[in-house]
Design a protein around this nucleic acid. Structure first.
Lengths: 192, 192
DNA sequence: TAACGTTTTTATCATTTGTTAAATAGTTTC
DNA sequence: GAAACTATTTAACAAATGATAAAAACGTTA
């Protein structure tokens, strides 16, 4: 990540190395967009038609449990923003995605990508690795949530992603960790 | 699922419909095996070379937290058994997989499958959908763990998979739910 | 069916987390 | 810089869960 944000080439290559020809097919389907802090990129109960990659900025996904928002995902430079229900099953998602800073994004229409999956074996394998890596991340999250205490999860977040504390409200981090904001405050006080 | 277990054709087709030719390429790479109840199919800290599909029986994946086993996955007829770290990154996994009943399994060598991914675009897309569906399942698990109370998660398990209570020890179910066995007993007593 | 081993439940107390409300700290706006 | 607004911490009590141990229920086998 440079000051100008994450390069598209790097994002694509990190998932799966492609020939120039195949990579260009993907790149031709991608457009750059910008949105201000606070923009709601995805709305719950809507079929999203695009996926994004974050060039610059951070975002969170949240859903409602009764009245309160629960954040279950953070994305930073290089990360994909995907409504999985839309992307995989062409169904309504359950999450909002909010941009927590002014963001520069790479947008890729799901329909165009799916067409490429059927036409280009390299891109099909690129899409396979994309899902596989997201799956690894999701499994690691799941294990952490099931195996570790709230304090351990907080310390792990600090270690793996120190800047998040500077960039994101503690109330969002608390719900991401599966605890209340009050409880997170107590944990922060206890580890000093 | 019939009395004879889940058919291989059905398992393959449910993931992604293939032409007869592509499907045969996969089927030629699959062999049937049997193991008795209690067999340890995957060992932690080992690179697994196969994935499996359950024709008949059930299994669980667990890892150790200090001294005690924590179950984080159950599989039943039709479900895949995969060490994701081995399958995706060719690295050691952190889980044991134990067969909880006498099992009939379809075995597929990862190396052979990966070769097919590079040769056959339909199979590459089959592998893509395979990872995508596993991703959806993992995300749903994650959301449930983060959003719902232990009682809600127990009731959901009862609803979505009623037979599991008959087939699996409550101690395994408790750790799957992220609670102790004592706590699960209390929940069971409270909802009667 | 009696005896044994395993699984599940119950009981007790300690610890953690949730809930509500108030106090403090930090930011933005005029 | 004061006022208004938002975010975070602290306090007090309630509820849920953990830990340990003992009792009860269940299964297996002789």
């Amino acid at each position: 990540m440079t000051n100008n944000g994450m390069e598209l080439n790097q994002i694509i290559d990190t998932i799966y190395p492609l020939t120039a020809k195949s990579k260009n097919l993907i790149k031709e389907s991608i457009i750059e967009t910008k949105f201000p802090k606070g923009h709601i990129l995805f709305k719950a109960n809507k079929i999203e038609t695009s996926i994004y990659f974050i060039k610059k900025g951070i975002a969170r996904a949240y859903a409602y449990s009764d009245d309160n928002q629960i954040t279950f995902w953070f994305g930073k430079e290089g990360d994909p923003i995907v409504s999985m229900q839309s992307y995989v099953n062409n169904q309504k998602g359950y999450e909002d995605v909010e941009l927590l800073e002014d963001c520069e994004l790479y947008e890729l229409k799901i329909e165009q990508l799916q067409k490429l999956f059927l036409e280009d074996i390299q891109i099909a394998n690129w899409g396979r690795k994309f899902a596989e890596f997201e799956l690894i991340k999701s499994e690691e999250r799941l294990i952490a949530l099931q195996f570790n205490t709230a304090t351990q999860r907080y310390l792990a977040l600090l270690k793996n992603y120190p800047s998040i504390i500077q960039r994101v409200q503690l109330s969002h981090i608390a719900s991401y960790l599966g605890i209340t904001q009050v409880s997170l405050s107590r944990i922060r006080a206890s580890i000093k």
